[in-house]
Design a protein around this nucleic acid. Structure first.
Lengths: 229, 229
DNA sequence: GCTCGCAGGATTGTCAACATTTTCGCTAGC
DNA sequence: GCTAGCGAAAATGTTGACAATCCTGCGAGC
């Protein structure tokens, strides 16, 4: 009480470093990585003792890590019956993408409001790289650049709350997105949607940026729906 | 889906019963309630041993409960330095409300798509009650009805992901909203925004419903901004 | 007079053992 | 031949004790 420290501001830069040491964070990072990487498939049981010897941490840490991932929606647990990797149905994935759509729209709009000249320059460079990756058919590079572009917009927008929510939502559907990227040949019309978004932000036109982002993600959602049939 | 803990509708009856028994859930509910009710003010330290004797559960349960609330953004914890009730700045509250704005817009749109005749009837009744509460100046009743209306839309929309996100976001800013409700005399123009939303949903016009919801929450955000000056 | 260093006390983080619940295989009975 | 009931094994949930870390107050030294 004597020490009224910093009013809680956002996130955790140094916390991450500190947490890297203790057992819980090793378990969290290991488990999250394994699930996101696909080493553990949806529906698979997570037996605590197995994870103990897999990660070399105590059972308490594993337990705590599972709690964390349950809160993130990556794992589901049933009382006295253990935990398993959450299986996200296509309908749920669509729901999640619809949330992402409006949140990314918000970010795009705010980014358009706040973007400075240097931000715009960086965005343009990234947009050009994206176009090249698409033209050369390098899907891996495209995916990486795509994520970086969204991250850049999030940073410019300053909407850390929205960015955080999107991060969580995305983690839940990486598998669907991966499948989508592999099975879908993107139509020519959607090739330059990123370019439009960049342009809208550069023009500092929030409404346009939001519309462009909405349109872009609507196409992804449509592709998701079609993939299910 | 993964989190049917708090938000809209208690799907699992027996889970509630089970959760009521074990220590962790008692601690979670108790702590969340205390924070939301304002019994514990932002910035206040949460000493584990104190909570132990307050709720009559073990320290492990308290610890686990704190982890849960950290994941929900209600509490922040610093390594080896304990946990405290998260202090949400006005800027952060505005950010959160902007997320809520677009998510509620999504829900309103989807609700307009899916609403059946009985849903519409229920909404109209609720809208009328809301109007009465405003006319009679009963702010407490207004607040309750307002929440119920939003919950009803969330249920109709079927977007449980968005509803869950909104539930979490809302919990983080109850304090701000409470202060806002007490200090602000709502302008006449915003009196019947709820009516407009209900009408738009009843007309099964998603775009209109989304616009109406956006406008409504934009006014709340504006009020929030003004309250800070 | 001020700063640096150092125990003392308090609080959190970790761990290993105990209790409870569920599941699966087996036997007995219809 | 099939189903119901029982018991052992495995996995989970819980508890209490131990170790590491941090804040506070006091005293010595410059």
């Amino acid at each position: 009480m004597a020490h009224e420290r910093r009013a809680g501001v956002p996130v955790a830069g140094k916390d991450q470093l500190k947490q890297g040491k203790d057992g819980k964070s090793i378990a969290v990072q290991g488990l999250r990585g394994a699930i996101l990487r696909g080493d553990m498939v949806p529906g698979q049981r997570l037996v605590e003792t197995e994870l103990v010897e897999l990660f070399g941490v105590t059972r308490g840490s594993v337990r705590s890590a599972i709690d964390d991932l349950v809160a993130d929606g990556l794992v589901e647990r049933i009382h006295n019956r253990g935990a398993r990797v959450r299986r996200v149905s296509l309908d749920q994935a669509i729901e999640i993408m619809e949330c992402r759509r409006v949140l990314e729209g918000l970010i795009a709009a705010k980014a358009a409001e706040r973007a400075g000249p240097d931000d715009i320059a960086r965005l343009r460079v990234h947009g050009e790289l994206l176009r090249q990756a698409i033209r050369d058919g390098e899907m891996g590079k495209y995916s990486t650049l795509n994520q970086e572009l969204h991250a850049m917009l999030a940073e410019i927008s300053g909407q850390s709350t929205a960015a955080d929510l999107i991060g969580r939502l995305n983690a839940q559907i990486v598998r669907h997105q991966f499948q989508l990227a592999q099975r879908t040949a993107w139509p020519r019309s959607s090739v330059d949607e990123h370019g439009t978004i960049v342009e809208a932000v550069a023009a500092k036109d929030p409404a346009w940026a939001e519309r462009a982002m909405h349109e872009h993600l609507s196409h992804v959602i449509t592709a998701l729906k079609n993939a299910g049939e």
